[in-house]
Design a binder for these strands. Structure first.
Lengths: 99, 99
DNA sequence: TTGGTATTTCGCCAAACACCGAAATAATAG
DNA sequence: CTATTATTTCGGTGTTTGGCGAAATACCAA
């Protein structure tokens, strides 16, 4: 969870996710959409991979990145943990765990 | 939006939100729940305030913090921006704005 | 094997972040 | 006015982050 929120904290990474939502893109294609060096983008891909927010596949030298949409459920459910409307029935107040 | 995601990126701040979800707490009460100095906590309160994630009211020298639950809607709707299931009907691909 | 293309990893640097203790501010009581 | 309590602001330190270019890796084609 922590890695997901950390990954979402950067505007460039959120923009990458938004682009990938449309369709998958190679690392090179993505680098054409951002005014950042390829090495910098590659770093962002690593963060997004570590958070399991993107998936990828290699064909030849080209790496295709695509969104892992299933993570969405997980994020929203954790947001309910802070903001949901019926605290006592959904979580144990004492626990205060950080998963 | 950026400030909200930045605020959520820190585990301590997420824990503060989770505590505040139960009921409002004063700064002092909160400081008893965390092994951090009051000045550090105060810094976290500032970040959460800037993101509009918490509200507060003063009575005497005591400051009561409470969760701003209305922000939840906003965060989820932005998450749909990345992860929602029907991209072309919900957003303009060309826009790529960061609000 | 040599060369070219796609991408990542490696140092490096500056800015941002999380933390602390001490000093400052603010309200209240005596 | 002085003391006490609650909280924040300030100045400092160590760590993490985001950026870059150069070097390394990987694959393919000639």
């Amino acid at each position: 969870m922590n890695e997901i929120f950390k990954a979402l904290a950067d505007p460039t990474r959120r923009e990458i996710l938004r682009v990938l939502r449309q369709r998958e893109h190679s690392a090179g294609e993505l680098s054409e959409l951002f005014a950042l060096s390829k090495s910098t983008l590659s770093g962002h891909f690593n963060v997004l991979k570590a958070a399991d927010l993107i998936e990828f596949s290699k064909t030849g030298t080209t790496i295709m990145y695509r969104l892992n949409t299933s993570i969405f459920e997980e994020v929203v459910s954790h947001l309910f943990d802070f903001f949901g409307s019926n605290p006592s029935s959904e979580t144990q107040p004492e626990k205060r765990s950080e998963s």
